[in-house]
C-alpha cells in the first residue's frame, strides 16, 4: 500500500479512450455484468435446490427482499456508520496530507516517515477501538471517528511524502535553472506530481474508512449503527437481515469510492487525455 500502483483503481486498467466512448465502455462492462448475473442465478438456484440453510447462505432474492422491506432502517443505520466514516476520512486524509507536506520539508524526517508510516499503517489499527471507547466513550461518534482517522492517516501520509518526492530530477533541475523559489517548486511541480499518489491513497482510504467505522462499532457503539445491527441480528438468528445490512453498507462504500474516483478525474484532467495525436 505504499504506492498508488498497489491501489484497486490502478489495477482496473487504463480508462477507455474518450473517442471510443460509450460503445467500448459498455462492451467492456458486458463480461463482468454477465458473470455477476450468472453468479447470482447459480447462487439462487443452488441455495434452493440444495436446501442450504440461511445461516450459511441466504438466497439473493431473500436478501434483496429484506433490503427493500427494511430500507428506511437500513439507510438510517448506514448513515450512522457512514457519517463516522466520512468524518474520520476527512480528518485522517486532511491530517495525513498536511503532515506529509510538513515532513517533506526536512530530509531526515522525510526518509524516516515512509518506513515508519508503512509499518504503523499495516498494523491492526482497529485494535485501538476499545482504547478510544475508553477515552471518548463507546456511545460517542468521536470514538469511531478517531479509529477511522487513524486508519486513513497513514496511507495518505506515506503516499503524500512519496508523491512529493516523486518529481523527476530533470524537472527539479528545470525549475532550479529558473531560480524558482521553494514555494513555486512545491505548487508548480511537487504537488501536481504527488496527486496520483495521494488519490491512490484516498481510494484505498475510502474503503478502509467504512471498514474501520463498522469494526469500531463491533467493539460497542450506537444501537442504531450498522455494526451493532449486524451483531445483534446474527445473535437473533436473522441472518438475512444481517446480509441486507452488509449490502446497504457496501452501497455506501461503493458510493464513497466512486466520489473519490470522480474527484480524481476532476483534479487530474491530464491523466484522462487521449494519447497519440502524433504528427
Amino acid at each position: 500500500m505504499t504506492t498508488p500502483a498497489a491501489t484497486p483503481a490502478a489495477v482496473a486498467g487504463a480508462a477507455p479512450a474518450p473517442g471510443a466512448g460509450l460503445v467500448r465502455r459498455s462492451a467492456g462492462a458486458a463480461a463482468p455484468l454477465a458473470l455477476g448475473l450468472g453468479v447470482l442465478v447459480v447462487w439462487e438456484v443452488a441455495v434452493r435446490a440444495l436446501g442450504i440453510r440461511p445461516i450459511l447462505l441466504p438466497p439473493p432474492s431473500a436478501i434483496a427482499a429484506a433490503v427493500v422491506q427494511d430500507l428506511p432502517r437500513l439507510a438510517g443505520a448506514t448513515w450512522v456508520t457512514g457519517r463516522s466514516a466520512l468524518l474520520g476520512f476527512a480528518i485522517g486524509a486532511g491530517g495525513g496530507f498536511l503532515a506529509g507536506l510538513a515532513a517533506s520539508r526536512w530530509r531526515p524526517l522525510r526518509e524516516a516517515v515512509v518506513p515508519v508510516g508503512v509499518v504503523l499503517g499495516s498494523l491492526p489499527i482497529v485494535a485501538t477501538a476499545p482504547i478510544f471507547n475508553l477515552w471518548f466513550g463507546a456511545l460517542s461518534i468521536w470514538s469511531k471517528v478517531a479509529v477511522v482517522a487513524l486508519v486513513v492517516f497513514f496511507p495518505v501520509l506515506v503516499n503524500t511524502v512519496a508523491g512529493l518526492a516523486s518529481a523527476p530530477a530533470s524537472s527539479q533541475e528545470l525549475l532550479r535553472s529558473y531560480a524558482a523559489p521553494g514555494r513555486t517548486v512545491l505548487t508548480a511541480l511537487q504537488i501536481p506530481s504527488a496527486l496520483p499518489f495521494v488519490f491512490g491513497a484516498l481510494r484505498v482510504a475510502a474503503a478502509l474508512s467504512v471498514i474501520a467505522a463498522v469494526v469500531a462499532e463491533f467493539f460497542g457503539g450506537f444501537r442504531d449503527s450498522a455494526g451493532f445491527f449486524i451483531k445483534t441480528l446474527m445473535a437473533n438468528a436473522d441472518y438475512t437481515g444481517a446480509w441486507a445490512t452488509v449490502v446497504a453498507l457496501s452501497a455506501f462504500g461503493l458510493a464513497l469510492f466512486g466520489a473519490v474516483a470522480l474527484a480524481e478525474r476532476v483534479a487530474m484532467p491530464w491523466r484522462r487525455d487521449d494519447r497519440g495525436v502524433r504528427t
Binding site: 530533470s170 533541475e173 529558473y178 508548480a188 511541480l189 501536481p192 496527486l195 487530474m268
Partner: peptide, 17 residues
Amino acid sequence: ERRDYGMVFQAATLFDW
C-alpha cells in the same frame, strides 16, 4: 539566480499537467 541563461535539456522535461 539572475536568470541570465535559458536551458534546453537533453530530455524535453515538460509537465504533463
